[in-house]
Design a protein around this nucleic acid. Structure first.
Lengths: 223, 223
DNA sequence: GTCCTAATGTACGAACTGGAGAATTCGCGG
DNA sequence: CCGCGAATTCTCCAGTTCGTACATTAGGAC
C-alpha cells in the first residue's frame, strides 16, 4: 500500500537508467489508473509521483492512452505468470478445485489494482482490450488447469454437473472479484465489511464449498 | 425505466416545466456517468443531450458532483422499489430462492447502468456513497425477504448450511454482476460472450442451482 | 393588464491538461 | 579524452472544462 506523499522527498538518484525509469512510470501509472480511472488519472500527477518528468512518459510511452494500455498489459502478464506456476495435479479433484478457488481468492485480495483496472476497462466497455490493433492476447493458463481437474473429477465420478471450465472459473472469479471490488457499495448498502480480517477465512472456504457442492450435485430433474 | 407516453411532446417544446427538465437531466446524466464515469463525463455533453442547457444543471443540481450523487441515489431508489414489490411467500423455500436469484439476475440484465454506476463508485473507493454528509441510506429490501426464506427453509430442514442472508445475497449478486459488468474483459481473455442470448437461460438457471446446492449441502466435516 | 419570481439563455473566464519543440546532459565505445 | 546518440530537462501551448455573471422571459397571482 503506497501512501500518497505529495512530493516524494529527494530519492535523489539522478543517473540515467532507462529500464528503471520506464518501470517506475509503469508502476506508478498502474496505481493511478486503478485509483482514478483512465479519464480521472492525470499525466502530471503520475509524473510527480515518479522521480522523472512528464516528458519522459511521452518519450517512452507516446501518449496517455498507450501508457494505460501498457499498464493493463503488464497487469495481465503478472496474473498469467502466477497462474502458470499453479500445480494441483497431485491433489484429488475436490481438493484441487478448492485449491484453485483459494488461489483465485488470494490473488484478488493480494492484487486489488488488477481488479480495479479490469473494472475500469469494463465500465468503458472494454475500449482498450477490445482494440483490435495492437492489444496482445490475454489468454489465461488457469483454464487449462481447471479443465484437467474437471476431467479427472468426472472420470472418477465425483463431479456430476454438466459445466465447463470457463463457467466454473466465472463462478469463482465473480465471487472473489465482487468481494474485493464492490466492498464499498456493499458496506454502504448492507453494513457488512466484506474484507474484514475476521471474515476472510470464512469467505475463502465458502467459495470452495459453493463450487464443490455445485459440481457434486446432479442437475435437478424438474424445473 | 418508466417511459412517459403522455402526449408525446414534439421535442421542440420550449414551455417551462421544471419537473420535466430536472427529470431529463437526471436520466441523461445517469447514462453519461455510467458510460464515462464521473471524471470522464462532461457537463457540456450532458447538457447537449437534453433539451435544456448547462445552466439548468447548475441551477437545479449545483455541481457536477451533486448531479452524480443525485443520479446514483435515483438508481438505488429504482432498485429499492423493484425489490419492495417482490413476493415469494407463496413459494416453497427452494423455489423461493431460485425465484430471488432469477430476479437479481434479471435486474442486472435489464438495468446495466445501475451496475456500471456501482462499479464507478467502487473504483473510486466509494467516494460518494461513503460521504457521511448528505448521502441517503441505501438499504435494500431484498435482505429481509431473503432472511424470511432462509428461516423457513431451515425450519423445514431443507437448508442445512450455516450462512446468513447477506452472504447469500452476496453470492447471487456477485455472479449476476460479474456476468454483465465484466463481459468485455472476460470475452477478451476467454473468448466467451457471457451475455449471448443462447447462454442466458443456462446462466439464469445456474446461479439458482449453485445457491440451492450450497444451502442444501451440509458443511464438510474436515478441511 | 401588471408585477414578481422562478426558470432559462448567453457568453465568458480561470484553471487545468495532454502534448510537444528544443535545448541540454550523460555515459559509453573508441 | 572525444564524439555521439540516447536519455533527460525546460518551457510553453492550444484545447478543454467546470462553473458563473448577467440578461431575459414565461406565466401565475391579483
Amino acid at each position: 500500500m503506497v501512501v500518497e506523499h505529495e512530493e516524494q522527498p529527494p530519492l535523489e538518484r539522478r543517473s540515467r537508467d532507462p529500464e528503471r525509469t520506464k518501470e517506475e512510470i509503469l508502476v506508478v501509472s498502474t496505481q493511478e489508473f486503478a485509483d482514478r480511472g483512465f479519464a480521472g488519472a492525470r499525466v502530471d500527477e503520475i509524473a510527480n509521483k515518479t522521480r522523472t518528468t512528464k516528458r519522459m512518459i511521452y518519450y517512452y510511452f507516446g501518449s496517455k492512452e498507450l501508457l494505460y494500455m501498457a499498464a493493463l498489459e503488464r497487469a495481465y502478464e503478472d496474473i498469467r505468470v502466477v497462474e502458470a506456476n499453479v500445480d494441483v495435479e497431485h491433489l484429488d479433484p475436490i481438493r484441487a478445485i478448492r485449491r484453485l478457488a483459494e488461489l483465485t481468492f488470494d490473488r484478488h485480495e493480494a492484487n486489488p489494482n488488477f481488479s480495479r483496472l479490469i473494472s475500469q476497462e469494463n465500465v468503458q466497455r472494454g475500449q482498450f482490450v477490445t482494440k483490435a490493433s495492437g492489444f496482445p492476447r490475454l489468454e489465461r493458463p488457469i483454464i487449462k488447469i481447471l479443465e484437467q481437474v474437471l476431467e479427472r473429477g468426472r472420470a472418477e465420478g465425483v463431479f456430476v454437473r454438466d459445466i465447463d471450465a470457463l463457467d466454473v472459473h466465472m463462478l469463482i472469479s465473480s465471487f472473489c472479484f465482487f468481494r474485493i471490488n464492490n466492498r464499498f457499495t456493499f458496506a454502504a448498502s448492507f453494513g457488512r465489511n466484506l474484507v474484514e480480517p475476521d471474515r476472510r477465512a470464512m469467505y475463502r472456504e465458502m467459495i470452495g464449498d459453493v463450487v464443490v457442492d455445485y459440481l457434486t450435485t446432479p442437475s435437478p430433474e424438474d424445473h
